[in-house]
C-alpha cells in the first residue's frame, strides 16, 4: 500500500458516498446514468469474485464488499425506489456496445485463460469505459448539477491516482500489470474533458454547462 493507492481508494469511496447521499437526500436520481451504474455493478461483481478464493487483507476485503454493495444499492435506488425520477429518456447509451467488446477483448488479451482471470480482465476493460453512458447523458442534457460534478471528479480522480500508484510500484516494487495500466490510462483520458470543465467552471462556483 502506498499513498497514491490509498488516496485513489478513498477518492473512489468518496465518489460512491457522494452519489448515494445525493440520491437519498434529494429523493431523486435525475442527471445520473442508470446504465453507468449497472455497468459498475457488473464491473465490481466480476472483479471481486476472488473474495471467496483469495484473502489479501482485511482492508482489501472490506473495501471490495463496500464497492459491491454500494454499486447494487445505487442500482436499486435508481431502478426501484426512485424510479420515477430516473432520466431514462436521456440515458440512451447502449450497454452492449461496451460489454460485448470488453468481453471479447478479455478473452483475447489476458494474463491467463481461466474463468476468474478472464472475468477480472473483463472488469478492468469494462470499468475503463463504464462512465461513457454518464458522460453521454451529461452531453445530451448539456449540464450537470454541482453534486453530480463532484461525484464525477472524485470518480475520475480515483483511476488517475492509481496511475501514480502504478508508477510508484514499478520503481519501488518492480511490479507492473500492463492490462491495468493501459485500461487505467484510457479510463483517465476519458475524464480529461470533464476535468477541464470542472476546474474552469464548477470550482469557480458556476454550474457545469456545456457550450451550446
Amino acid at each position: 500500500m502506498n499513498i497514491f493507492r490509498l488516496l485513489g481508494d478513498l477518492s473512489h469511496l468518496l465518489a460512491i458516498i457522494v452519489l448515494l447521499l445525493k440520491i437519498w437526500k434529494t429523493r431523486s436520481c435525475a442527471g445520473i446514468s442508470g446504465k453507468s451504474q449497472i455497468l459498475f455493478a457488473i464491473v465490481y461483481t466480476s472483479r471481486y469474485l476472488d473474495l471467496v478464493t483469495t484473502y489479501i487483507s482485511a482492508y482489501n476485503t472490506f473495501m471490495k464488499l463496500i464497492f459491491v454493495v454500494a454499486a447494487y444499492a445505487t442500482v436499486y435506488l435508481m431502478y426501484i425506489k426512485f424510479k420515477a425520477t430516473y432520466d431514462h429518456n436521456h440515458d440512451t447509451f447502449r450497454m452492449e456496445f461496451l460489454v460485448i467488446p470488453s468481453l471479447i477483448l478479455a478473452l483475447l488479451i489476458n494474463h491467463e485463460l481461466t474463468v476468474l482471470e478472464v472475468l477480472w480482465t473483463f472488469s478492468i476493460y469494462l470499468e475503463s469505459v463504464a462512465i461513457l453512458p454518464q458522460l453521454f447523458l451529461v452531453s445530451k442534457t448539456g449540464e450537470a448539477e454541482s453534486i453530480t460534478s463532484h461525484y464525477l471528479f472524485a470518480l475520475g480522480s480515483y483511476r488517475g491516482l492509481y496511475l501514480l500508484n502504478w508508477v510508484y510500484r514499478y520503481y519501488a516494487e518492480d511490479h507492473y500489470d500492463l492490462i491495468a495500466i493501459v485500461a487505467g490510462l484510457v479510463q483517465t483520458v476519458l475524464y480529461c474533458d470533464f476535468f477541464y470543465l470542472y476546474i474552469t467552471k464548477v470550482l469557480k462556483g458556476k454550474k457545469l454547462q456545456l457550450p451550446a
Binding site: R5, T54, F67, H111, D174
Partner: peptide, 10 residues
C-alpha cells in the same frame, strides 16, 4: 511478480 499474480489492488 507478473502473470498469474493475485490482484491485490481494488
Amino acid at each position: 511478480d507478473g502473470i498469474g499474480d493475485s490482484h491485490d489492488e481494488l
